[in-house]
Design a protein around this nucleic acid. Sequence first.
DNA 1: CTTTTTTATAACACTCTGTAACAACAGCTG
DNA 2: CAGCTGTTGTTACAGAGTGTTATAAAAAAG
Lengths: 242, 242
Amino acid sequence: MTTPTTAHLLVVDDDMEIRQLLSDYLQQNGYRVSIAADGTAMQQMLKTANINLIILDIMLPGKDGLDLCRELRATSDIPIIMLTARGDDMDRILGLEMGADDYLPKPFNPRELLARIKGVLRRSGTLPHGHNHEINGNYRFNGWILDTSRRHLLSPTGTAVSLSSAEYRLLLAFVSHANRILSRDQLLDLARDRSSFAFDRSIDMLVSRLRHRLQDDTEQPEMIKTVRGEGYLFLPSVETVT
Amino acid sequence: MTTPTTAHLLVVDDDMEIRQLLSDYLQQNGYRVSIAADGTAMQQMLKTANINLIILDIMLPGKDGLDLCRELRATSDIPIIMLTARGDDMDRILGLEMGADDYLPKPFNPRELLARIKGVLRRSGTLPHGHNHEINGNYRFNGWILDTSRRHLLSPTGTAVSLSSAEYRLLLAFVSHANRILSRDQLLDLARDRSSFAFDRSIDMLVSRLRHRLQDDTEQPEMIKTVRGEGYLFLPSVETVT
DNA sequence: CTTTTTTATAACACTCTGTAACAACAGCTG
DNA sequence: CAGCTGTTGTTACAGAGTGTTATAAAAAAG
């Protein structure tokens, strides 16, 4: 590898040998690498280090990788590459759309892992980690502009649309997690006031109000699509503007 | 279920009633089933029969299920599904660490047990399974376009056709496994909501609804053809578009 | 040709979602 | 402080989505 990189990876696998092997290999290729044996160790690591990408084995003792992946997605946009056993039920896993950014069946060629890591980091724009509400600037989608400094929405025709504070937080959650199915619980985590413990159906109401602001049709949505039994999906491709 | 299988299961449970109930139910669903009341009977059975999968109650007189599981793992790779009391996460964790392949809390829906059995057998490489979904991109067939990022369908004339979630998942299963006969069970695995354990006949209904969306004639199908006794076949050649 | 098996679909039951209406509450104004 | 305004969660109910049952039609078997 010619280009130096400073990305910090976290390898989560219960097999010590694999953990060490991957860690060594990735370090040789210029990455900073931390390791964790299970979900709790992973959460611990995420608190103390600024992780750019997680490599997550789907088979883990206790909570499995799918659960962890879903939980992570509730609060974070850190890219995830899932490792699965070959011959495993990949169809099912992919169908679940847990929000992993890529999948790699074991056993794999280490160079392929490297390629995927590069690809995922490139696609994610190597965003800084953390909760969602940190970007200072504007988001643009379908001609609309969400102004995060003024907490303000501009329609494609340029007129200002006022948003209540809950509507703003919800829209921010959507634009910063676009093209991914978000469950009601995840949306509550992302959009609600810390102090409130709302019934998760209250998100429906908020979505309805936000759709109305965006003049989005429920039946043929251009922006917020309902995925029955799973949650909501923000369709437009979102551009961050500074 | 209709697909024949020759897997040989061993049910280990000290409760005679449960043993008999499970045995009957699993046999009705095409499995060969043997039973054992405790660890010694289990070991005896393993010597005399070629068992493909063990369903093991964690609560047993004498040596309990965890011990048996660990002993088995010392000498054998036979897949194990553990049955335990609901809500006991400790058991689940211990079971998985001891090498169980899956875990099912009692009381359970018998169909869920069937689903787990199928899943474990497939993962263990005993049964074949299909290829992978593409994660991103669109599919084109007969002029139709399935847009996976927006989860909707465009007709040859360019009009948007809305699909329900289940219809979308079924169509995705078809286009990503085109020109292959897919059994009802396979389609259920690929298309069902992960929390539901439906009868395989419910696929018929879904196919019927999807055909209607695609304006496909049942008698002279251009897309979804029925293969009597085997399942369904997606006829068009599918092109993946990015 | 009759019987049996399998499939297509209508009808139904049940679940999930959209939203109107209302209640509770906060902030503002006079 | 009363009264107004806007926000936000809850309740209620209509309507859409989905699995099951029932039944007729089609295909295979006898």
